[in-house]
Structure formats: structure tokens, C-alpha cells
């Protein structure tokens, strides 16, 4: 009987994996036998997380969130100083900082769920934007925030495309991104774009926009 099984296995590619031990059960059978052995294949890696390529991208995505969270925190702090004194801007950027921080934690939990590990050094090259001047004025900061949020959205789209079109199909990753990132991004981007255009109109063709900015900041603080 076992010879017969071996013969069938040897003839099919699928069984080669079984025989050479790419399965958790196989490892366990080996380890529980008198000979003993390593249990290496008992993990939750499957689908697009079998290879390292997607993992590296999701690690990078989590790291982008951490980076952005700290940058939003610096922007928030800048508008909290007594010279700027824009409580609304301070609050808005603090909320964006909190949000990106929470999402970074969520991404790392997700990586753990799918059998990966986190690498805090893995991130895409962003040399040309290392030098952000955080001493911003109101409109400039809003434009910066909009660009940063769009970058986060594009990175989600990139990973989504990898698991739906380019590489191995993995609906769980796609759905996770949709439910927890994609829709929220569009909301935030729409809001920031609205703010940027409001600000633009409010201060255009005005030699002194200070009152407009004061009122807008007050509105921002109350609406958040």
C-alpha cells in the first residue's frame, strides 16, 4: 500500500512537495517519529505572503505610516507655537498623526496575522524629500498634507495591484486594504483638497489675509 502511494506521489509534481516536506503535517509526523526532526512549515504564510516580495512592500508601507505620523506631529507642533498659534491646524495635523500611527500598528498586526515579520528598516527610498522644512505657513502646510496623504493612497493602490493583477492573487490582502485604508484615504484626501482650495480662495487677491486665516483656523478647530 505504501509503495503504491509512493509511486503515485513520485509521478505527480504536487506530491513532490509533500514528500520533501513543505507541509506542516509532514514536519509533525517527522518530529513525532523516533528519528525526530524540525517543525518548520507550521506557519500562517500562504497566498501572496509565501514569497518575500509582498512582505517587503507591506513592511515599507507600515514604515511610511510611521514616518508620516512623526512628520504630521512636527507640523502640528509648529502650528502650536505662540507665534503661529493656529489651534485648528495644530489639531488637524495631530489627528492625521494619530491616525497614521494607529494604522502603522494595524499594518504590523496584519503582517503578523499573515505569517510575516516586521522590519523597521525596510522602506522605499525617499532621499529627495528628506529635507522637509517644517516651518510652514498655513496654505503651504495644507498642500503638503494633501501630497502626503495622496502618497499613502498611491502606495496602497500599488500593493493592491500586486495582489490582484501583477503577482499572486490574494483577495484577503486586497480586501484588508480596501476596508481599512483605501476608502478612508479618499475621504481624507477630499477633505484636505477642500481645505486647500478654500484657503486659496480666501487669501487670493488680498494684500493682508490675516483675518481670513484667523477665521478659517477657528472654523477648522470647531469642525474637528
Amino acid at each position: 500500500m505504501s509503495i503504491k502511494l509512493f509511486a503515485i506521489c513520485a509521478t505527480t509534481i504536487l506530491c513532490v512537495g509533500y514528500v520533501t516536506g513543505e507541509y506542516c503535517y509532514n514536519d509533525v509526523v517527522g518530529a513525532c517519529s523516533p528519528v525526530g526532526g524540525e517543525v518548520q512549515n507550521c506557519n500562517s504564510r500562504y497566498g501572496a505572503f509565501k514569497g518575500d516580495e509582498l512582505l517587503v512592500n507591506v513592511q515599507g508601507y507600515a514604515n511610511t505610516h510611521i514616518l508620516r505620523s512623526f512628520q504630521f506631529l512636527l507640523m502640528s507642533s509648529h502650528f502650536g507655537n505662540f507665534e503661529k498659534n493656529r489651534g485648528g491646524f495644530e489639531k488637524l495635523y495631530r489627528q492625521l498623526s494619530d491616525k497614521t500611527w494607529e494604522q502603522a500598528i494595524d499594518l504590523v498586526k496584519f503582517i503578523g496575522k499573515r505569517g510575516g515579520h516586521m522590519n523597521f528598516r525596510s522602506r522605499k527610498d525617499e532621499k529627495n524629500e528628506k529635507q522637509i522644512d517644517f516651518e510652514m505657513y498655513e496654505l503651504g502646510s495644507m498642500a503638503r498634507a494633501l501630497d502626503m496623504q495622496k502618497g499613502l493612497a498611491e502606495e496602497a493602490n500599488f500593493i493592491h495591484a500586486e495582489v490582484t493583477r501583477r503577482k499572486e492573487h490574494d483577495p484577503e490582502v486586497a480586501s484588508y486594504l480596501e476596508n481599512n485604508f483605501v476608502h478612508q484615504h479618499s475621504e481624507i484626501i477630499r477633505k484636505l483638497s477642500g481645505h486647500t482650495n478654500d484657503l486659496k480662495h480666501l487669501i487670493a487677491n488680498q494684500p493682508d489675509p490675516s483675518l481670513s486665516l484667523y477665521l478659517f483656523d477657528e472654523y477648522l478647530q470647531k469642525s474637528l
Partner: peptide, 19 residues
């Protein structure tokens, strides 16, 4: 404080692993 935050973050990541 943020270095401490990141160290705890890494601990959280480590103990979240399936293995």
C-alpha cells in the same frame, strides 16, 4: 520617548507573529 515607543512597537510586532 519615541525611541522607547519604537522599541515597544517592535516588541508588539515580535509577539504578534504567528510562530
Amino acid at each position: 520617548e519615541l525611541t522607547a515607543a519604537m522599541t515597544y512597537f517592535a516588541m508588539g510586532a515580535h509577539f504578534s507573529k504567528d510562530t
